[in-house]
Design a protein around this nucleic acid. Structure first.
Lengths: 252, 252
DNA sequence: AGTATGATTTAGGCACACCTAAAACTGCAA
DNA sequence: TTGCAGTTTTAGGTGTGCCTAAATCATACT
């Protein structure tokens, strides 16, 4: 897609961002935010589904644009401008997802792909009006916090579920909408965002847990399904990949 | 934008359409539909804001894709597949515009640009759900008919306003949403879609007319503005360009 | 018929974003 | 300390879509 053309070109670099640049910024931010680790070129390549050389070239370009800090062979970090861009994209993405679920009847597992395309096509005006219409939501359907119009983002203190020690009582706060397996796991075990669970055991990243708030939001008409063995036993096993896609807060 | 990737690749050429191809198809269709004339390469270039050679190259590509009929130096016509693609884009565009006006508080003069970008980003699923939510509207806020899910399009028999002979009584049916001057002319003179007018005189495409249904949909609180001279006299002059952007039906 | 005028196509380039293959660098370990 | 394995960058190439400049075609007019 061509660069975003705006009436008043205030932030130069951010206005000049192409679809690709927007995706890179968002992904760098996501990796840093989610894992709290330093972002390597190859992690970025893996996440974006492109080759390492492509990342290398793009990092040079984005460094020239003043969006990333990057000395050769060193890890990658966003500059303040880059973080601005990333947060703007996150805001778009999460508002769009909220809208798709609330008003267009999408399931929470369907919205990611659609939002991924739409976020590059909408104007600032659009985002602001959507925000008003939705009543300035603070989190999206996956529990992910939505940056405000000033791009400020406040979120509760959370841990990656895969890093929670055994025997801890926690509340499910967020799921990564880009990991379908995580979404479907929560769906099939009827564990909604906000549910409390106890971590029973951990096994090299994989997690076994028990729901405390029973049944979640079982729809009134639907009888409890008996066809799920682990749910029947009250104990759920999540693969590392899946547990890595969830964030929880500690319950005192 | 990259080609539209679909789960089941049924119509090959249509699924492989890039944003540019979609725009070309839509524009060719628009020129043919609106004017009823044969579409030349340079008219296409002018409308799309690209150079003639670009059109030439793209026509070869779209001919290879089976979307247009084009022998060198001859006018351009869509194939049935090309028409399908164009109608699908028109459907998207008009449904999105309807939604922006109805639910996001956009003015009818703001929606074109936004829809122009969104129409390339949304999925078929999105369009269908939007259609349902809006209650299967048959026309958009500019009076333009919206193709159904089967891409069938039925519209009333209309004339370009700039071709209406003098002394004829007509009803305003459609405005071209891509012509801001036409939209603002109707706004300032308070002539809504559906209004009846008499064509007073024509002057090489320019048109002078008198409203018959007075006042249009004046908002109750707003007193009739006195600051418009021609409207006060009950007689409105539209430049050719503007009159060419409107379609009317004959009132018996 | 002959030519000028405008429409159209070919030729040659540029920017973006991606790729594979090969070279260069880093840092850990024998 | 030297070597090796993995990471990262450079080199060279592809596809899309656009551009300007130059050649070609079609036609309308003298």
């Amino acid at each position: 897609m061509t660069p975003r053309t705006s009436a008043q070109g205030r932030s130069t670099a951010i206005e000049a961002a192409t679809t690709s640049v927007e995706d890179y910024a968002k992904t760098i931010y996501g990796l840093a935010e989610w894992d709290g680790a330093s972002v390597t070129a190859s992690a970025l390549a893996r996440t974006l589904g492109v080759s390492n050389p492509s990342v290398s070239l793009m990092m040079r370009k984005m460094a020239d644009l003043g969006l990333v800090e990057h000395r050769p062979y060193a890890p990658i970090a966003l500059t303040p401008a880059g973080r601005q861009l990333a947060l703007a994209m996150v805001r778009r993405h999460r508002l769009i997802e909220t809208w798709l679920v609330r008003e267009l009847g999408y399931g929470w597992e369907e919205v990611h792909e659609e939002a991924e395309r739409l976020e590059h096509a909408v104007s600032e005006t659009f985002v602001d009006r959507l925000d008003v219409r939705l009543g300035h939501p603070r989190v999206d359907p996956h529990g992910d916090p939505i940056p405000g119009p000033d791009l400020q983002l406040d979120y509760p203190e959370t841990l990656l579920l895969c890093r929670v020690p055994a025997a801890m009582k926690v509340r499910l706060e967020q799921v990564d909408d880009a990991v379908p397996d995580a979404l479907s796991a929560l769906d099939t075990h009827r564990v909604p965002i906000g549910a409390q669970v106890t971590v029973q055991a951990t096994d090299r990243g994989a997690v076994v847990l028990t729901p405390l708030t029973p049944g979640g939001q079982d729809s009134p008409g639907a009888p409890p399904t008996q066809d799920d063995q682990s749910a029947a036993a009250g104990s759920i096993r999540l693969a590392h990949e899946v547990a890595h896609a969830m964030r929880v807060s500690v319950v005192r």
